[in-house]
């Protein structure tokens, strides 16, 4: 890809061609104790060509949101409301057969655990050719194999190893294979759910480099789900912070990291181990993660919030722009009548 193209890419991010738009999405899981609101009225635009980092504590609904984008929520979960606009179509309205064609071909997903995400009984090449021929039935087995070899080579694996079984590869290699699978049909959008959590630091860095290269080369849009702020800071263009199934903050990496608005985001950043900081006074956020069975009233973060105001427990703040392109759902930045700040 030329410098120009990269520049064009950047500009499309800036101008914000929206590739995938989530509107007011809610997902619930039916459990014995009641309904768990894992994703609660989330709206989010993913711009073409960007890497969007989606962060939040474990259990806040990130994976659920990712799966919902693929329309892959299975019982006991269900999407209770919302629209998923992708390439001019609301995915909530397409048939299951059409959806299956979109999955893999135009939307790809990479899961957290590379050790368990590949079929232990199939060779790597079979994974790839199967994916290719499923979506492009006209491609011959041999041609599919050629493409698979190219991809594997591009991702930095030895081509001879294509006939090996998954258990013969290391975690980092398998995660590359997972990416290869997502790229086999040149998906427009790849949702990577904690792709590096299971990898060690060095492999993680290599993997992230690769991801950035591929983004440019394959014209990819990537949603990077993680609870690792460091990863986001390294690769993402924009960051979305989730809390208790809701959007807390959204903005460019610089905006969110240097000018954090939401108190939860601030806490999250202070909890990141920092080399310059003395390890001993690492900040630990107070309170327990929210109970999604009984999400706190008003702003769900108010029981843990250092800046809590009376209104916070009464009414839910809107997910509104604080500065252009930078949104936060917090009463600190929104007009409200009377109660006043402390």
């Amino acid at each position: 890809m030329t410098q120009d193209a990269i520049a064009a890419d950047r500009s499309s991010v800036a101008t914000g061609d929206v590739l995938y738009s989530i509107r007011d999405l809610s997902v619930e899981y039916g459990t014995r104790a009641g309904e768990v609101a894992a994703v609660d009225r989330v709206s989010l635009d993913i711009r073409k060509g960007e890497i969007l980092g989606l962060v939040g504590e474990s259990g806040c609904g990130k994976s659920t949101l990712g799966k919902a984008m693929m329309r892959m929520i299975s019982p006991p979960g269900r999407i209770t409301q919302g629209e998923l606009w992708f390439a001019g179509e609301d995915l909530m309205t397409v048939s299951e057969a059409q959806m299956r064609e979109i999955r893999g071909a135009r939307l790809g997903m990479v899961f957290q655990d590379p050790m368990t995400s590949l079929n232990p009984l199939s060779k790597i090449v079979d994974h790839l050719t199967e994916t290719i021929t499923t979506h492009e039935p006209s491609v011959s087995e041999a041609a599919a194999r050629d493409r698979a070899e190219q991809l594997i080579g591009r991702l930095g694996l030895r081509v001879e190893r294509i006939d090996d079984y998954p258990h013969q590869f290391s975690g980092g290699m398998r995660q590359r294979i997972m990416i290869a699978l997502a790229l086999a049909l040149r998906a427009d959008l790849v949702i990577a759910d904690e792709p590096t959590t299971a990898l060690d630091v060095i492999v993680e860095a290599q993997f992230l480099d690769l991801l950035r290269e591929l983004r440019a080369e394959f014209d990819l849009t990537i949603i990077m789900i993680t609870h690792n702020i460091g990863v986001v800071a390294e690769v993402a263009d924009r960051v979305a912070v989730m809390y208790a199934g809701r959007m807390a903050e959204l903005g460019s990496v610089d905006e969110v990291f240097l000018d954090t608005k939401h108190p939860y985001g601030q806490g999250l950043l202070r909890a990141v181990p920092n080399i310059e900081l003395d390890g001993s006074d690492l900040y630990q956020m107070e309170g327990a993660p929210p109970n999604l069975l009984h999400t706190p009233s008003g702003c769900p973060f108010h029981p843990r919030c250092p800046h809590v105001m009376p209104i916070c427990s009464e009414r839910e703040p809107a997910f509104a722009e604080v500065t252009p392109g930078h949104r936060a759902s917090c009463w600190l930045f929104q007009e409200h009548d009377g109660e006043g700040e402390r």
Binding site: T31, A33, G59, A288, P289
Partner: peptide
């Protein structure tokens, strides 16, 4: 596994409730 405390509670349902709701479950 690594799950929040309240998520564990989802499985720990009292005996009475278990009997009462057994038919549905």
């Amino acid at each position: 596994a690594q799950v929040a405390d309240w998520e564990l509670e989802l499985q720990k349902v009292g005996f009475v409730r278990r009997v009462l709701r057994a038919r549905k479950w």
